[in-house]
């Protein structure tokens, strides 16, 4: 599903974000990416979403080679990815329903489809009664669930979550990751960047640790080595 081979990334200002990173994520996996800030976690996600291009190496997502991908093909690549952000990124002047519908609208979904799909997704995240609320009327945890609903509504193959629990109460963080696990059980690949150790410890998932631009630990490799 996601494959990085010898990927390096240097930003134009000279910052070396990633060195020779190799990572393979299979379809249906749930992976935590951990590391201190500035380690290169976000750069990793940006390479997968094609927001940044690597200096060299091989990068394949969904069987598509991202090294030579044309700019105009990037939007279609992203339609298979749901992005969840630390700051939720909900549009304040739109209701919960409209925020979720917006994601469908801008990729060309019809109104009838939207009316059917959005309530279903809101039910999935247990916010079916809050469709008419504005983001400001919701708690942080609820807002992030809306963010998750928006990421899910176009039925992506994978969810890329960048510190999704960074702005919400620790108690509610578990709720979010629970939801992600549930989504994962339905077959969606999950990549979640975090630095909350309690979450990582609690949910026994694959953990990839990045330090100073290199992958320094990968629980999957450990398991494979033990076998």
């Amino acid at each position: 599903m996601i494959e990085l081979k010898h990927i390096s990334k240097t930003y134009p200002n000279g910052t070396h974000a990633l060195y020779d990173v190799n990572l393979q994520v299979e379809k249906g996996e749930f992976v935590f990416i951990v590391g201190s800030s500035g380690a290169g976690k976000s750069t990793l996600l940006k390479l997968i979403t094609c927001e940044e291009r690597p200096d060299g190496g091989e990068l394949t997502v969904n069987g598509q080679n991202l090294i030579g991908i044309k700019r105009r093909d990037v939007p279609y690549l992203r339609r298979n990815m749901g992005m969840v952000f630390q700051d939720f990124r909900l549009i304040p002047k739109m209701t919960v329903f409209e925020n979720v519908a917006f994601a469908m609208h801008v990729v060309g979904a019809g109104n009838r489809e939207i009316k059917k799909r959005v309530p279903y997704i809101l039910g999935l995240i247990d916010l079916q009664d809050k469709g008419d609320c504005y983001p400001a009327e919701l708690s942080g945890g609820e807002q992030q669930r809306v963010g998750l609903a928006r990421a899910l509504v176009n039925n992506p193959d994978m969810i890329l979550a960048d510190e999704p629990t960074g702005n919400i109460d620790p108690a509610l963080s578990f709720e979010i990751v629970d939801l992600l696990s549930e989504i994962n059980l339905r077959g969606t690949t999950i990549l979640m960047v975090t630095h909350e150790h309690s979450l990582v410890k609690h949910f026994q998932k694959r953990v990839v640790e990045i330090h100073a631009g290199r992958i320094v630990a990968d629980t999957k490799e450990l398991e494979e080595a033990e076998l």
Binding site: R72, P75, Y76, R78, F102, V106, G108, R150
Partner: peptide
């Protein structure tokens, strides 16, 4: 810019 960033993240084309 918030709307634009969301549009980009869910894969809206530049023309849209």
């Amino acid at each position: 810019r918030l709307e634009i960033s969301i549009m980009k993240s869910v894969g809206a084309t530049n023309w849209f």
